[in-house]
Design a protein around this nucleic acid. Structure first.
Lengths: 332, 332
DNA sequence: GGGCTGAACTTGAACGATCCACGGGGGTTC
DNA sequence: GAACCCCCGTGGATCGTTCAAGTTCAGCCC
């Protein structure tokens, strides 16, 4: 009834611990008939190698750290949720577990990561929500904690260990789609927080439409990321003659939608960002972030670093995909 | 530059490993001046005890397993998100980490939990999304994996290791609130999936209003948990003379809202469930689930079991709280 | 037949923290 | 002053796995 160990199994089978270890880790080092005998015993006894003992001996935890980010700004929180899902699933397939931990600030996050790494609780980590001049990559590199980030090193020195969504290309595609629908004055409804992500999306929209500086200033409105502000911004854009809009988030596109709807317009003139459940439920078009590809990429990056700490990597940009919707009979 | 260990620190300080270990784990066993000297050295060198070595020696991982539940049904996914947040934060304060893992089915979840437990990767686990005749509690008990569940053992034998939200009380409070606002025909917009959670909420609504069987049948409409179905259900309820509605979810209440709004009604006659970001953004009232208390309770329960595997526990019901909103100037 | 090779398996020694039995010094008690 | 206890601290053994260095033995060649 006690947990079987290498030693107890070995005694029972009259072979050495090492032979059993080899059957598990290097099967071809063992003669086929011995291997079969050992494997049978493993199955029968339900033996599982102790992760703790392995971690101690190999100096490797087979785990990755992930900060549980702060409750997200409203509706758009679900991107991180989806990203976490992909990451956990793919990590699992590579034999890695994800360890969650809380942190209120970036400093606390780095402290905890370094601590987790020292204590052999994780081998590497994944960063999210990178910001202008984010200090975390440099600090982690300093402490030689392998990492990869979902998000560019905006402004900071390029460390190459990141994957990000190409917001510029996404906004450009959205704008082009609206133009293909026949719209000639297409507005941009963005964030006033000065975030690099927001600026990037705005540039994509302006470039796709080949706008002059004056035109861009006229057709872009930047507000806080709330439904109310989105509605107010949309009203403003309509008054400036826009007939369609590219939004920096689904929160804003929801606000825009409330205005369009009241005036009897079609929801097809709005394209949001992130393809959240709300957009799906309301039949609003949105740019879907390729979180699965991003998760796969950052995972590959940390695994590569674990295998070879000196490996050189290069950042990767992945374009989002337009999910065009036409609403539903009832709520249309 | 190498990682300090107990042995290396001990050699440097001319004390034994045990003394340092005592300073960390049982400070009062060591003379104050020795303690101070050791603590200083710990700070200076940045020494951290190896979690792997500890786990091996103590047969305890200081970690809890949590299945990353499947992408949730639309808008309401955020409850689990909030619950996870609370859990991670509180576990951290007790020195426990949360290990995420994916599972497609309940069987796979149990298998992985038993495996994680065997390999000493976790000490216990948290279950969520309990369902009618859920087999997981019995299976985990069988494998002697300590656990606690967010959700009652609907239908199954009461194992006592759970905390849940009292949906019945919540729906009753919502109904009473609407009546206090002067409504006399208050409908219920619920799920057609036959879920025990949904039935429970419906019972709360009916009891609070002292409805007869006929009245209940007339004023309750059950549909799928989508915005469109919610809108259709609300239209039906209005045609039956209802002037207000208690909804089983914010998804449904959003659907109901689209109908009420089109007819120029006030959003105050709608109360949803889960207090999701969408409800907040749109100024809709909703019953907020006390996820923080639930997380605290289940955490206490697993810690108690880790300390004493034979401990007897009793399930806990916690009432949700009404968050009354009145909309905003713009979207009102 | 001596020596070499390689396959198949065994053995001892880590990894780093904690438990346990014990030792030496100092004080108390009879 | 001898027996006893308490406090502080020591060193060995232990948790379960894997690495590195053996050992054994069959097969082969000159």
């Amino acid at each position: 009834m006690n947990k079987p160990t290498l030693a107890s199994l070995a005694a029972e089978l009259n072979v050495s611990r090492q032979t059993i270890s080899n059957v598990i880790n290097f099967p071809d080092r063992v003669r086929p008939e011995t291997r079969a005998r050992v494997q049978e015993a493993i199955e029968r006894s339900g033996y599982r190698p102790s992760a703790a003992a392995r971690a101690l001996r190999n100096q490797r935890a087979n785990a990755l750290g992930l900060r549980l980010s702060n409750p997200r700004n409203g509706i758009s929180g679900s991107i991180m949720d989806a990203f976490t899902h992909s990451l956990v699933e793919r990590a699992d397939q590579s034999g890695y577990r994800i360890v969650l931990f809380p942190a209120r600030t970036n400093e606390e996050e780095v402290d905890k990561l370094v601590e987790l790494r020292r204590t052999l609780a994780i081998d590497a980590c994944i960063l999210t929500d990178t910001w202008l001049d984010d200090a975390r990559p440099a600090q982690l590199a300093e402490a030689s904690v392998p990492f990869a980030a979902f998000g560019r090193p905006w402004g900071a020195k390029d460390h190459g260990r990141w994957a990000d969504v190409d917001g510029r290309a996404g906004a450009a595609e959205a704008a082009a789609h609206l133009r293909a629908l026949g719209h000639e004055r297409i507005g941009y409804l963005g964030w006033s927080d000065g975030s690099p992500v927001g600026k990037d999306r705005r540039v994509g929209w302006a470039q796709a439409l080949c706008l002059s500086g004056d035109q861009e200033a006229e057709l872009a409105v930047e507000v806080e990321d709330t439904v109310d502000d989105g509605a107010a911004g949309m009203a403003e854009l309509l008054s400036r003659g826009a007939t369609a809009v590219v939004c920096a988030s689904d929160t804003l596109s929801l606000g825009a939608f409330t205005v369009i709807r009241r005036r009897g317009g079609s929801r097809q003139c709005i394209i949001g960002f992130d393809n959240t459940p709300v957009a799906r439920e309301l039949g609003l078009s949105s740019m879907a972030q390729p979180v699965d590809e991003v998760a796969a990429t950052v995972l590959d990056m940390v695994l590569a670093q674990i295998a070879d700490p000196a490996v050189e990597l290069e950042g990767v940009l992945i374009a989002p995909a337009l999910v065009a919707r036409q609403g539903s009979a009832l709520t249309g």
